[in-house]
Simulated assay, not measured.
Amino acid sequence: MLNNFKEFKMPRYEQVRWHIQTLLTESKWDENTPLPTEQEFADKYEVSVGTVRKAVEKLVEDGVLIKQQGKGTFLKRPDFASSLLRFFKFRDKDARYVTPTGIIKKIIVIDGIDDINKKLNIGKNKALIYIERTRMVEDRVLLSEKIWLPKSRFQAFATLNPEDFENLLYPFYYTKCGQFVSSAVETLYFITDHSDDYLGNTKQENLVKVCRIAKNLEGDPIEYRESYGLAEKFSYEINII
């Protein structure tokens, strides 16, 4: 099974790791379904159990897999709620923390944009799926998001309407288009002189802008997102132990 790698000086466990990642991607693996056992992988790839164990441990270290005692090894979906929302903690009228509801306001196919296409590592003439989305709590818009996706990866979105989308986008990316978001890089800015139609702010009000590049299991960028929120709603909290 690993003969294709003979000409490469790649350790066997790295070869197995690559094959497992490919399996997860191409089979649209259910994150609630345990992976085959280490022995089953060893038989499949004709390697030792120790080699498979090292490959799996590396994928756990990389945040791709998670081991659950007594249950097995599973595909791990990053908790992005603890990312952006750690900067914007929302409370309802009873002062309880709540997770905002995502609402798609617009989805269209657009021509490539040089700067965006570079971020997505695709040709400058490649078409994009452009999405506008709000995050709301009790009918108040608290975050406004602009999202760009490579049309080649998200072809199924080209015919969808805003009401066809689910509240959580990343699981929907996976079930609808087979695109699994494994990691992301975020950069935060405070900006001025920018108004947003959904937030309804004036140019005199400061905004927080969070730029995110989300990547798949292979490390390829598959989404670029800009999220805007009022600076007065921004907070930073960290526990130091």
Score class of each variant (00 low, 15 high):
T159H: 13
Y170V: 03
A158K: 10
I103N: 13
P150M: 03
F90D: 02
L169F: 08
K124D: 09
T175E: 08
K124Q: 10
A156Y: 06
D164N: 15
G123V: 00
L128R: 00
F172D: 12
T159Q: 12
L169H: 01
E132Q: 13
D114A: 11
P100M: 14
K89D: 05
A127D: 15
I108R: 09
E145Q: 14
L168R: 13
F157H: 07
I122K: 03
D111E: 14
K119L: 15
A158G: 07
P150E: 05
L120W: 03
G178A: 10
D111M: 02
R153L: 15
R91L: 12
P162D: 13
S152V: 10
L169M: 15
M136I: 11
Y130W: 01
T159C: 02
K105N: 13
D164W: 08
F157L: 12
S152M: 09
W148F: 15
L142E: 03
K126Q: 15
D92L: 14
K89V: 14
N117F: 02
V109E: 14
E138M: 09
T159G: 00
F157Y: 15
G178M: 06
F88K: 00
R133M: 11
A158L: 08
F157C: 11
N161Q: 15
I108W: 02
N117W: 06
E163G: 00
L120V: 11
V137P: 03
G112F: 08
T175W: 09
N125F: 02
R153C: 05
Y170K: 11
K118G: 07
Y173K: 01
V181F: 02
D114I: 09
K151T: 06
D115C: 05
L169E: 06
N121W: 14
L120T: 10
D114Y: 14
K89A: 04
K89E: 07
L128W: 00
V181Q: 08
